[in-house]
């Protein structure tokens, strides 16, 4: 597994734990109302579960197993794009967390925009790897 995939997948596992922990608290709060403030964790539960866990796991595994350029010194193409994706997606998640904490709407838009740039970077960096065997 390449180093970037290790970063992506381990980050995904950390977000999986966070998503499960927040989700567990929300479900407990549904059973016995501990505090209405716990419902404020719902956007973070969803962000960690979808973007933090599933998106990053998918990108990490894709970067690992998509076809490589066997005769190239850079078999996975220009990796800078995918590293940029990893950094941007995680900065985007941090912005979403800040939005929930500070309740500043522009942070949500900025976070989603940064995540979108990250996904674009990943698509650009790996587009040509989606190819027939031997091509």
């Amino acid at each position: 597994m390449p180093r970037l995939s290790v970063f992506f997948v381990r980050a995904a596992l950390i977000y999986l734990l966070l998503a499960f922990t927040f989700g567990g608290l929300l479900l407990v709060n549904k059973g016995i109302m501990i505090s209405a403030r716990i419902w404020a964790l719902l956007p973070l539960h969803m962000e960690f579960a979808f973007v933090g866990w599933m998106f990053q796991l998918a990108m990490g595994v894709a970067f690992w197993i998509l076809p490589r350029f066997s005769s190239s010194p850079t078999p996975r193409g220009n990796e800078d794009w995918s590293w940029a994706a990893f950094i941007l997606v995680n900065i985007g998640i941090a912005f979403i967390v800040l939005q929930v904490l500070l309740e500043e709407q522009w942070l949500f838009l900025a976070g989603r925009g940064i995540e979108l740039l990250g996904l674009f970077a990943f698509a650009i960096g790996n587009w040509k790897r989606v190819k027939p065997f031997g091509a």
Partner: peptide
């Protein structure tokens, strides 16, 4: 309520 709490605990343990 107890069922939901048990569910939360089991799901969290699965993740861990």
């Amino acid at each position: 309520a107890g069922g939901l709490i048990a569910s939360a605990l089991f799901q969290w343990l699965a993740g861990v």
